[in-house]
Simulated scan of single mutants.
Amino acid sequence: MMKDALQQLLDSCIEHGTETDLDALQHLLEGVQKKIIQNKSTFIDGILHMERTFEQNTCEITIPIQSVLNNNLNILHGGITATVLDTAMGSLANYYLPEGFGAVTNQLNIHYTAPGTGDLLRCKAEIIHQGSKTMVISGEAYRSDGKKIAHATGTFFIISK
């Protein structure tokens, strides 16, 4: 039953969608497929096509910028930038915590400095402070031409899993 309804929805989108709509749909479906194939832990990782690396107390996440992620001004939606910054900072916090502990966002501050344009968003996070109950992490977001588009700080609660 669910597959039939999904197939009908997909067929309708394909039949009535513009090229831009179909490009967005393909991007989203490829992200869901990536989540399934790579056994990603969350749909947001797959849907945003996140590539994550850790090195020297930093975490870096890159995503391709695609029209489905844009706001009505046709630039990257600030909420997407916030999501990727939060994910980079939270991933870093969780990466360095001992077994049995996790980190969740307590506070997130973002200063947007330029529009998100181009082909790629790159967010880099680094630990500022690690205590027994909280961590403070900074993050910066860059567009594909290297221009910084946002600076963030986040406080993360350390919790038992």
Score class of each variant (00 low, 15 high):
L6S: 13
L6F: 13
Q7K: 14
D11S: 15
D11E: 15
D11N: 15
D11Q: 13
C13R: 03
E15Q: 14
T20F: 05
L22H: 05
D23M: 11
L25Y: 04
L28V: 15
L29K: 04
L29R: 10
G31Y: 05
G31S: 03
V32A: 15
Q33M: 08
N39Y: 07
N39L: 05
K40L: 15
S41I: 11
T42K: 01
F43V: 07
F43Q: 08
D45A: 13
D45L: 10
G46Y: 04
M50A: 03
M50C: 10
E51S: 09
T53Q: 13
E55D: 14
E55C: 00
N57W: 04
T58L: 04
C59H: 00
E60N: 12
I63S: 07
P64C: 10
I65K: 02
I65G: 11
I65C: 05
L69F: 11
N70K: 14
N70W: 00
N72L: 09
L73W: 08
I75C: 11
G78E: 11
G78S: 06
G79F: 02
T81A: 02
T83Q: 09
T83H: 10
V84K: 06
L85Q: 01
T87P: 02
A88Y: 02
A88K: 02
S91V: 09
A93K: 09
Y96R: 05
L97P: 02
E99Q: 14
E99T: 13
A103Q: 06
V104R: 01
V104P: 04
T105K: 07
N109D: 15
H111A: 14
H111W: 06
T113N: 05
P115A: 13
G116Y: 07
T117E: 12
L120D: 09
R122S: 08
R122M: 08
C123I: 04
A125S: 02
E126D: 07
E126Q: 15
S132Q: 14
I137V: 14
S138A: 15
G139S: 09
E140S: 13
A141W: 04
S144C: 10
S144T: 10
D145C: 04
D145S: 10
K147T: 14
K148E: 13
I149G: 03
I149F: 06
A150I: 03
H151D: 09
A152V: 00
T153M: 08
G154P: 05
G154Y: 10
G154M: 01
T155D: 11
F156H: 12
F156V: 03
F157N: 14
I159V: 15
S160D: 11
S160I: 11
K161P: 00
K161W: 04
